[in-house]
């Protein structure tokens, strides 16, 4: 007879452990005498910027009127040129008939602006995206070369994989930026994306190779026996099946890539990590910013795993 063991004590234990950890962290931060200022974080995502409008030259205010939410200040310079300056109502600092010198503030406008953390997040996203796509293409080509019968192709693929896997990504980024970037006159962004793509490509190549080799030989034989050429058999039979199998390791590789993209901050690309560092220099909110940055990386990577999970479920219909 099958005994049904209750699971709630274990759930309770899990909750207790998490509470203890959280309590421990709280206690530890109390001890280091650190003032948490979480309220200073949101302004580094979006903030209302004050853009002050100045008098363009020496002159006189002719008229101040309101136009909807704007206030319009009509200004006439000493040379007789009229300009209309639009500012937000309530920020007007001048009155009709007042004499102004060039550069005097007239009023201000408030506009929403994205902060450095949002910009950094966006940079991280698109750098990861482009290097991911490029890495996938490279990995596919290198993976196919790796299983090819041609010794030249196979040799090149092995050399590529071994070279990249055997050296640290940080060093590769430096080499790409300082050496290859200088020789080919590459932009730092291009150098960063290429370094990441080539790094991801080497690992993807191994994943692709393993995926292709995991498909039973009979599949290739059946395809070839029907008169398909090798590329046709690869395209219609082997790769679709291999892709389904390598989706989980591929997902892991892309998650790694997103995290590894933080290393491009060393060549002064303002990604999420570098933005975080910059914000810290102006706020000294070290703990809050690093936790926020970590949470943002976690957000992107968990979204990606959800997408891949969904793809896996869709591809599982033929099982």
């Amino acid at each position: 007879m099958k005994q049904k063991t209750p699971t709630w004590p274990w759930t309770l234990l899990l909750g207790l452990i998490l509470l203890t950890v959280a309590g421990g962290i709280w206690w530890a931060t109390k001890r280091v005498d650190y003032t948490w200022r979480w309220n200073r974080v949101p302004q580094y995502f979006v903030y209302r910027a004050e853009l002050v409008e100045h008098a363009p030259a020496d002159g006189r205010v002719v008229e101040v009127r309101t136009d909807g939410d704007d206030a319009v200040v009509v200004f006439e310079s000493d040379t007789g040129e009229r300009t209309e300056i639009r500012v937000d109502v309530g920020t007007v600092q001048v009155s009709e008939g007042e004499d102004l010198f060039e550069g005097d503030p007239v009023g201000a406008r408030f506009r929403w602006r994205v902060g450095p953390l949002t910009k950094g997040l966006w940079t991280t996203l698109w750098i990861s995206f482009f290097s991911g796509v490029l890495g996938l293409v490279l990995g596919l080509v290198a993976g196919l070369a790796r299983v090819s019968k041609n010794p030249t192709l196979r040799g090149l693929a092995i050399l590529y994989v071994e070279l990249i896997r055997g050296t640290p990504l940080l060093v590769q980024i430096f080499i790409f930026y300082f050496f290859i970037g200088t020789v080919l006159n590459l932009d730092r962004i291009v150098a960063g994306i290429l370094a990441l793509a080539i790094f991801a490509g080497a690992y993807t190549a191994e994943i692709v190779r393993a995926g292709i080799q995991s498909i039973p030989r009979g599949q290739m034989e059946a395809a070839r026996s029907l008169g398909m050429t090798l590329p046709q058999a690869m395209r219609y039979i082997i790769l679709p099946q291999a892709f389904k199998r390598i989706l989980p390791p591929l997902a892991g590789q892309f998650i790694s890539l997103i995290k590894d993209s933080s290393l491009v901050s060393v060549i002064a690309i303002t990604d999420l990590t570098k933005s975080g560092r910059e914000v810290i220099t102006s706020t000294f909110a070290t703990f809050e910013i690093w936790f926020t940055v970590a949470a943002l990386y976690l957000l992107i990577t968990s979204l990606l795993s959800q997408v891949i999970l969904w793809m896996e479920r869709r591809l599982a219909v033929s099982d």
Partner: peptide
């Protein structure tokens, strides 16, 4: 090969189709 059909011991149908 397109003139020569072959049937295998392990069927070798394409499982994803």
């Amino acid at each position: 090969r397109r003139e020569v059909g072959m049937v295998f011991q392990q069927f070798n149908l394409f499982p994803h189709k």
